[in-house]
Amino acid sequence: LKKVVALYDYMPMNANDLQLRKGDEYFILEESNLPWWRARDKNGQEGYIPSNYVTEAE
């Protein structure tokens, strides 16, 4: 899975979204639905995130 790091905080707009915290790492599960990607956080929560809020992890 592709790993990304959040560049900004993101508060979910609806139940399908995943909250982002700046500096945290996330795994990308699906990239087909631009600009929204399906992601999983370190706690196993899954949801959609804005792809322009993250960058690929080193």
Score class of each variant (00 low, 15 high):
W37S: 05
R38T: 10
Q45G: 09
N16S: 12
D41H: 03
P35H: 15
N52E: 12
N43V: 07
W37F: 09
E58M: 14
L34V: 09
K2V: 06
A39R: 00
R21P: 00
V5M: 08
M13H: 11
A15H: 12
A39W: 02
L29Y: 06
R38W: 15
P50Q: 07
L18I: 05
L18F: 04
N43K: 10
M11E: 14
Y48R: 09
E46M: 06
E56H: 10
E46T: 07
L7W: 04
G47T: 01
V54Q: 01
F27E: 10
N14F: 11
I49R: 00
W37T: 06
Y8L: 10
N43A: 10
Y48E: 04
Y53M: 11
A15M: 10
F27D: 07
R40M: 14
P50H: 08
F27A: 05
A57T: 12
G44W: 04
K22C: 08
D17Q: 15
W37N: 03
Y26H: 00
L1Q: 08
R40W: 06
K2W: 06
G44K: 04
L29K: 03
P50W: 07
D24W: 13
D9V: 02
D9H: 05
W36T: 11
A57M: 13
P12A: 06
M11S: 11
D17N: 10
G23F: 04
G23L: 03
S51V: 09
E25G: 04
A57W: 13
A39G: 05
G47L: 02
E46L: 04
A57C: 13
L18A: 01
N14W: 10
Q19N: 06
Y10Q: 02
P35K: 15
Y53L: 09
D41I: 01
I49G: 01
M11N: 11
W37K: 06
I28C: 03
E25A: 09
R21G: 03
D9T: 04
Y48D: 06
T55Q: 12
N16E: 13
S32E: 09
E46P: 02
D17M: 14
V54N: 01
L1A: 07
K3G: 03
R38G: 04
A6I: 02
K22V: 08
A6D: 00
W36H: 12
W36I: 14
P12L: 02
G23P: 00
W36E: 09
Y10H: 05
Y48L: 11
A15T: 13
K42P: 05
L20M: 08
Y53P: 00
Y26V: 05
N14G: 12
A6Q: 00
A15N: 11
P12R: 04
Q19P: 14
R40C: 11
D41M: 02
P12D: 02
L29G: 02
L7D: 03
G44C: 07
N16L: 11
K22I: 07
E56Q: 11
Q19L: 10
E30Y: 10
R38P: 10
N43P: 02
E56T: 11
Q45F: 12
L1V: 09
E30S: 09
S51L: 06
W37D: 02
S51R: 12
L7M: 09
L18K: 01
E31M: 14
W36A: 10
L18M: 06
R40I: 12
P12T: 05
E30V: 07
Y26L: 07
G47R: 01
R21D: 05
E56C: 11
L20R: 00
P35N: 15
Q45D: 10
R21Q: 09
P12H: 03
E58G: 14
M11G: 05
L18P: 01
G47M: 01
K3H: 06
W36G: 07
G23V: 01
V4T: 03
R21M: 09
N16G: 15
Y8D: 07
W37V: 14
G44F: 05
E31V: 11
I28W: 02
A57N: 08
E30Q: 10
N33A: 11
N14K: 12
G23D: 06
E56R: 09
D41S: 08
D17G: 15
R21E: 06
E31Q: 12
M11K: 12
K22A: 13
V54C: 03
E56F: 14
N16Q: 12
N16K: 09
W36P: 07
P12Y: 02
W37P: 09
N52F: 11
E25T: 14
P35M: 15
T55E: 10
S51M: 11
R40T: 06
R40F: 06
G47K: 01
S32G: 13
A57G: 10
Q19A: 13
N14M: 08
I28Y: 01
V54I: 07
E25F: 15
P35C: 15
Y10S: 03
M13L: 13
Y48W: 15
N14T: 10
S32Y: 09
Q19S: 08
T55R: 13
N52H: 14
T55G: 09
Q45V: 13
D24P: 01
Y48T: 07
L34C: 14
Q19C: 10
E25P: 08
S32V: 08
E30R: 05
F27M: 09
E31T: 11
Q19H: 09
G23E: 03
D41F: 01
Y53F: 11
D41A: 09
D24F: 09
P50E: 03
S32R: 07
T55A: 13
V5K: 07
S51K: 13
F27L: 13
G23A: 03
N52L: 09
L20C: 02
W36K: 14
L29Q: 03
Y8N: 07
F27N: 04
G47D: 00
P50I: 05
N33E: 15
V54G: 01
D41Q: 02
A39S: 03
V4G: 02
K42N: 08
M13P: 07
I28F: 02
E25I: 15
I28D: 00
A15E: 13
V4W: 07
L20G: 01
P50F: 08
Y48C: 13
I49H: 01
L18Y: 01
S32M: 08
W37C: 07
D9I: 02
N52C: 15
N33Q: 10
L7I: 09
Y8C: 15
A15Q: 12
K22Q: 10
I49V: 08
A39M: 04
Q19M: 12
A57Q: 11
A6N: 00
E31S: 12
K2R: 14
Y26K: 00
E58L: 14
E56I: 13
D41R: 02
G44N: 06
L34W: 15
K22N: 04
S32Q: 07
W36L: 14
K3F: 05
Y53T: 03
L29P: 02
K3I: 13
W36Y: 15
I28M: 03
A39V: 11
P35F: 15
L18S: 01
L1D: 05
Y8V: 08
K2L: 07
E30A: 08
F27Q: 07
R21W: 12
Y48K: 05
I49L: 06
E31D: 13
V54T: 05
K2N: 04
T55V: 14
L34A: 14
P12E: 03
Y8F: 13
E31A: 12
R21T: 14
D24K: 06
I28A: 03
N16T: 14
Y53E: 01
E46R: 03
R40G: 03
Q45E: 11
D41Y: 02
N14Q: 10
E30P: 03
R21V: 15
A39C: 07
E58I: 14
V54Y: 02
P12N: 04
A6T: 01
P12V: 04
R21Y: 11
V5G: 02
R38M: 11
S32I: 08
W36M: 15
L34G: 15
L29V: 10
V54K: 00
E56K: 11
W37I: 12
D17A: 11
G44V: 00
W36C: 14
G47I: 01
Q45N: 15
E46C: 06
G44M: 05
M13C: 14
G44H: 05
L7Y: 03
L34S: 15
E58P: 14
K42A: 11
L34I: 07
G44L: 04
P50L: 10
F27I: 12
L18C: 02
L7Q: 05
D41N: 11
D17S: 09
M11P: 06
K42C: 09
F27G: 03
E56M: 13
V4E: 01
R21C: 11
